[in-house]
Design a protein around this nucleic acid. Structure first.
Lengths: 190, 190
DNA sequence: CGCGTAATTGAAAAGTATCAACACTGGTGG
DNA sequence: CCACCAGTGTTGATACTTTTCAATTACGCG
């Protein structure tokens, strides 16, 4: 399954009903293929996935796309840009119909300073992303395409049908041609 | 040059002279090749580089090492393990004689909750690591070995003589053989 | 000098990208 | 109902890149 964070989503959902909190959180909907954050553009809000799947990817000067991560329920994005500079280093696109909760930069920083629990959640989320990215990059570089594909499928069973092959290839950092060969090889040897 | 964070180092140095703060921070020295954090082991402290260079790497089940990052002055490590679980997903090794400032888990969490400036520094540091890792992984996957090497050399001029070739190869995710060919190719075409 | 570690190189094998052709699918309009 | 289209997925042949492995050289240090 896609990476999710139910605990954080529950927390935010609970908050969005409390006075003094609900006004800071705005719900929003996106259709598939909608571009939510555009690379190199200003990011004014933080987003939390309520329902659906989003794709986080980076377009290189070579024209190639590289998928950083697929975001499921309770995953946050746009928060990295709140701390250092407001320009996004990646794009975010809805893969399925997507429901998000939006918090403005101003309110996000206010919450961080005023709500200890929120602050702790964000620290944990950031640390978790670092770990995820570190392990992923290392694994990718150190294993064969077949092994990388197997790992992805064990982490996200049922990604076929939801995520286009092009995106899977871009997540693994390989071409579609090579992805197809890997799939075939795995079928034959199983 | 190696990634550094002078602002944070200045802040920590200043703190370590203040009453109520200095007792929380311990200075420590390591010799080259000393293993400071061991993969899969418990991490009890957070470390901040005061002087020298450390290598952050991950050993895969294939026996291959992958270098995540080289830490310079003001860079922090061990902090990721403070938030989720205390077992390290990577190893940290001194490359040069290394001077670090150490903060125990207990005191780290205390500082996070009591010192707003410290809290904000950590948030920024974590966000910065995410961005660094994201951009790096994407660039690596999308460019040729030669281009990756050029990028590394432009970011860290003078890494030869300090960082062994094996580590450079492991940082780029390639073999030493291939690194040597890339170096030769770049020399010829320049 | 001799030892161990690090760096270098060539040749063969394995893996991956590129490119072009073709198949499948769902939706649209005649 | 069929023809057409665009987007997506599939495949083979070839060129290119990287790894593997083994042999050799260079360097620092007791």
């Amino acid at each position: 399954m896609i990476r999710i964070n139910q605990e954080f989503l529950d927390f935010i959902n609970k908050c969005s009903t409390q006075s003094g909190f609900k006004d800071l959180i705005i719900e929003q909907q996106y259709k598939p293929k909608a571009l939510i954050i555009k690379q190199e553009s200003k990011v004014l809000d933080v987003f939390i996935v309520r329902e659906g799947i989003a794709k986080c990817y980076l377009t290189e000067d070579t024209g190639k796309d590289f998928v950083q991560e697929f975001f499921g329920e309770g995953q946050i994005f746009g928060e990295v840009e709140m701390f250092n500079d407001e320009f996004s280093f990646c794009s975010i696109e809805a893969l399925t119909p997507l429901s998000v909760l939006k918090i403005s930069r101003e309110n996000f920083i206010y919450l961080l300073s005023q709500n200890r629990e929120f602050n702790w959640f964000i620290l944990k989320l950031l640390a978790s992303k670092i770990k995820y990215k570190g392990i992923r990059h290392s694994f990718n570089q150190s294993h064969s395409t077949e092994t990388n594909l197997q790992r992805l499928e064990s982490q996200f069973p049922g990604l076929h049908g939801v995520i286009p092959k092009k995106d899977i290839a871009n997540y693994l950092g390989i071409t579609e041609r090579n992805l197809n060969r890997a799939i075939k090889t795995l079928k034959e040897t199983s």
